[in-house]
Design a protein around this nucleic acid. Structure first.
Lengths: 212, 212
DNA sequence: CTTTACAAACCAACCAGTCGGTTTTATAAA
DNA sequence: TTTATAAAACCGACTGGTTGGTTTGTAAAG
């Protein structure tokens, strides 16, 4: 086997093992020895691929973020032409995807926060940019943020095993969050925002404006 | 000093220390030795009050739950006469309270989940009952659940340090979530629910009314 | 005098990370 | 093709320090 692919396989095995451990035993049980055991590698092998435990967490986080980034990009390409607020739609769909994917990215996130809260800076920065885009394209930015928050609440509550909702309800609520027609009845003219960024409010059709 | 109050003081000191540690250093740093150091007690003293670490977590969880239970009860008494959906209003207000209280109950929750996910059963059961009450009184149960989910999303995202929202936005969004008038434009007649639970829906005063 | 609350030393298990050595792969000279 | 050499991947025993929990001792409350 090629050396490069051998490394990649080992790295992959270690990360898969890490996810499995977090999902099965909780983030507190994630140890380097456990990763070695679960992946079939020796501890030395794991340490050869990742110099520290933090490096494992970071790689895990980046891998999961990349996965949802890809989902997000594809979805965005699909709806950007038809949706009035493609950024919001994409974010909602991505969160739903995260909520239904078993080996969720969010597990990696929890583990990272427990071990080293500063790792949370990566996802937060990304989220900030997306949130800006959502606000930019929205006729009612606050309502858009609330829809986003609702999706996040559904995701996190089910992730923490504290959701009192059934699978059916869960799915139905996501559908409703995604359906723009259900949220057009109470939009409020974003007076303050309209005053300071005149262009954006009228250009709610397609183009997300880049701002600094 | 009375023996009973001496014990109580020690228990309290240990729990306060635990909260401080979680808030300052993260849930992963919560150890029995750290609790002893922070509280001024010896480790033996801590272990005398709590036989295991899990007992500490459980007590912590129960204490925080009791605190918010009290808040909840008071709020409920205040709004039950004037609000059409007092259960939802109370839950939203309580979640906001948790989000703004620095030594949040949610921190204890995170710590519990890291250490022993099964501890999450206590709060989940309570949450289920509240959710049932919210659905019961709601003209549009799904919308009510989404408002609840939105509040939870705001809470958890800020708790995890992954919120891209400013303090101002945070507060403004909570206000809007709590304002019934902002959510009456798009209520949907809960046809399915009305069919299967006839008695309850008519008993409550919350008739779905459309307003501009 | 008995029980309770606490202190301090102690212990076995576990943890992240190290290290010397072994196997596998890559390169290239003979 | 064979052989020599180096580099990368991998192994598993080991280390210093930490962890949850125990044991032993002591002072105060009842």
């Amino acid at each position: 086997m090629d050396n490069a692919t051998r490394s990649e396989r080992s790295r992959n095995a270690a990360l898969e093992a890490a996810i499995a451990i977090i999902a099965r035993d909780g983030p507190g049980r994630l140890t380097l020895d456990a990763i070695a055991r679960e992946s079939g590698l020796s501890k030395g092998g794991v340490m050869h691929q990742f110099r520290t435990k933090e490096a494992v967490l970071k790689a895990l986080l980046e891998r999961q973020m990349a996965h949802f980034e890809e989902f997000s990009t594809h979805y965005m390409a699909k709806v950007s032409a038809t949706s009035a607020n493609p950024n919001l739609a994409t974010q909602l769909a991505t969160i739903r995807e995260a909520a239904t994917t078993p080996n969720s990215a969010a597990l990696a996130l929890v583990a990272a926060m427990v071990e080293n809260p500063s790792l949370m800076a990566l996802p937060r920065e990304l989220e900030s940019k997306r949130m800006a885009a959502i606000k930019e394209e929205a006729a009612d930015p606050d309502l858009a943020m609330l829809r986003w928050a609702g999706a996040l609440g559904l995701l996190l509550s089910s992730l923490f095993g504290m959701s009192p909702l059934s699978k059916d309800e869960h799915q139905r609520l996501f559908v409703r969050l995604l359906d723009d027609a259900q949220w057009t009845g109470l939009e409020q003219p974003a007076t303050k925002r309209a005053a300071k960024s005149g262009a954006a409010s009228t250009a709610k059709a397609a183009t997300p404006r880049k701002r600094a």
